[in-house]
């Protein structure tokens, strides 16, 4: 049943670049995990103990929003979504490096960890690796859709 409806989608919108085929599926899964992790973490922390580390928890919430948006664009597909995802991945990468460096240079500003602390070490460095892989995949998606 799922395969039938998927094929129907493709015939209705043949011009939309599919971003979740092949390696894209793995990316969507990893981004999905980061969304669930970052959203639940920031909701929990902001609602229970926001005063303890407002900066860290706000940054976690921003990270959660960025992850959610990238996941949405990947699932939606299409050229505009691909460009938006590319921009967000770049922003995400910059965020990881800025926050990562910030946490190392000035640890006192962060009484508690964010998703992007120490370049995402608490998350197996996935926050650093994910945008890099995603940018590679999104750039390749354009070239393959042009040749196809």
């Amino acid at each position: 049943m799922t395969q039938g409806s998927g094929a129907g989608d493709m015939t209705e919108r043949p011009q939309r670049t599919k971003l979740i085929g092949g390696p894209g599926m793995l990316l969507v899964w990893l981004y999905g995990v980061m969304v669930v992790g970052a959203v639940s973490r920031s909701v929990y922390q902001i609602s229970t103990e926001f005063d303890r580390a407002p900066l860290a928890y706000s940054l976690s919430a921003v990270a959660a929003l960025v992850y959610a948006f990238i996941t949405y664009t990947l699932v939606r597909g299409g050229e505009t979504a691909r460009k938006a995802a590319l921009a967000c991945c770049a922003a995400e990468l910059v965020g990881v490096f800025v926050v990562g460096t910030w946490t190392l240079v000035d640890p006192s500003a962060f009484p508690d960890a964010t998703v992007w602390s120490d370049f995402g070490m608490g998350y197996l460095f996935i926050p650093v690796l994910l945008p890099l892989t995603a940018i590679m995949w999104l750039r390749r998606s354009r070239t393959s859709s042009v040749t196809a």
């Binding site: 799922t2 998927g6 979740i20 085929g21 092949g22 390696p23 894209g24 599926m25 793995l26 969507v28 899964w29 990893l30 999905g32 995990v33």
Partner: peptide, 25 residues
């Protein structure tokens, strides 16, 4: 929820990348 979610995604992606998704899950 982790494994069921990854399992459904591997049903939608019938290639090696579906297997990789379950492994990541």
């Amino acid at each position: 929820c982790a494994i069921p979610a990854a399992g459904f995604m591997s049903l939608a992606e019938r290639t090696r990348w579906g297997s990789a998704t379950v492994a990541a899950g």
